[in-house]
């Protein structure tokens, strides 16, 4: 099946129906999506991509709701990709980020798409990079990526967003937590939300002290801001800081680096996807040779690594 020109044309005019349809094809990997992405990839290259990450309940969706409003005040078109986790048991998901953003549902300059991780690790879904391609080609000025509620290690957003905002709340851990590696390292802006709660100052200080300890001389010094997103307080400042970071990227060649990092992550992820697909076929399919190798490993007649290497040589990835 070939992707219809009408559908593609609709999406490029930001028609919600066409965007919804194409996003579904891409997210589900349906027939025609590869072809659509091939054509979409050649377009765009203009949009700003901002990642919003942080623990569950920190206020990411509410912040995004406010950022949409700020963006619209500036006449920007805004798209949101909001990711929530898939159940490891049923494969289902409840996607509830949109609840906080419904005031923008009927605004033709806003497109919001909820996504489930579908087993993908890293805080996003595998399709997010492709959906950014779609939204960028459609000419959205600003794309906001909301990760799942993160713990410590979901850092994939740093490869896809130009600017990453880490949203946290007062009193979540102390200065030692702030020193740990992982998601706390990747942000360009730190935001302590729900700043009307106790311990706001301590949390801000812990984060600032973590940032000041970095030995590495970085061209960008992340700042720590505070907000009460439910009241809209502090959101203007976040928007200004996003602008400041974008200007920094423009001046320092950071946008080029970002394009490169997206390309790198996308190709690597595509290869991983193809390998995983062939692997799935192997594991699900009744390949007697594979099954007998598994038996040999379980009987300790051969080690897993040797079997894996042999099978990697045998798999024909090109066919997928």
């Amino acid at each position: 099946m070939s992707i219809s020109d009408e559908l593609l044309r609709g999406a490029l005019q930001r028609d919600p129906w066409a965007l919804g349809k194409l996003a579904r094809m891409i997210d589900d990997g349906l027939e025609g999506s590869d072809e659509a992405l091939e054509r979409l990839h050649a377009m765009g290259g203009r949009c700003r991509v901002v990642g919003i990450t942080g623990p569950p309940g920190a206020g990411k969706s509410t912040l995004i709701n406010n950022l949409i409003r700020e963006g619209r005040k500036r006449d920007q078109t805004v798209a949101v990709l909001a990711v929530d986790p898939t159940s490891p048991y049923s494969g289902g998901a409840v996607l509830g980020d949109r609840v906080r953003m419904q005031e923008h549902a009927t605004d033709p300059g806003v497109y919001i798409r909820s996504l489930a991780t579908r087993g993908h690790m890293g805080g996003l879904s595998r399709s997010v990079q492709h959906l950014i391609t779609l939204l960028d080609a459609a000419g959205f000025d600003l794309v906001l990526l909301e990760t799942v509620g993160v713990g410590q290690e979901e850092v994939e957003v740093k490869d896809l967003a130009q600017t990453t905002v880490f949203v946290t709340v007062p009193g979540l851990g102390d200065g030692i937590q702030a020193m740990k590696a992982g998601v706390l390292e990747i942000a360009h802006i730190y935001l302590v939300n729900k700043a009307d709660r106790p311990m706001t100052e301590t949390t801000v200080k812990d984060l600032e002290s973590m940032l000041s300890m970095s030995e590495e001389k970085r061209a960008w010094h992340p700042s720590v801001l505070t907000s009460i997103a439910t009241e809209g307080t502090g959101v203007q400042e976040v928007m200004e800081e996003l602008d400041r970071h974008y200007s920094h990227l423009q001046a320092s060649g950071g946008l080029e680096n970002w394009r490169r990092s997206v390309a790198d992550a996308s190709v690597a992820e595509a290869i991983r996807g193809i390998v995983e697909e062939s692997l799935k076929e192997l594991v699900n399919g009744d390949n007697p040779e594979f099954e007998s190798d598994i038996d040999r490993v379980s009987r300790k007649e051969e080690d897993p690594m040797s079997v894996a290497r042999r099978w990697l040589g045998k798999l024909d990835f090109g066919k997928v």
């Binding site: 898939t86 159940s87 048991y89 049923s90 289902g92 409840v94 996607l95 509830g96 949109r98 419904q102």
Partner: peptide, 17 residues
């Protein structure tokens, strides 16, 4: 969700639009 569906919840007080 427990039957494997992806469910988008939009909350209270929604207009048909």
């Amino acid at each position: 969700r427990d039957r494997g569906f992806e469910v988008i919840y939009t909350g209270l007080h929604q207009t048909p639009e």
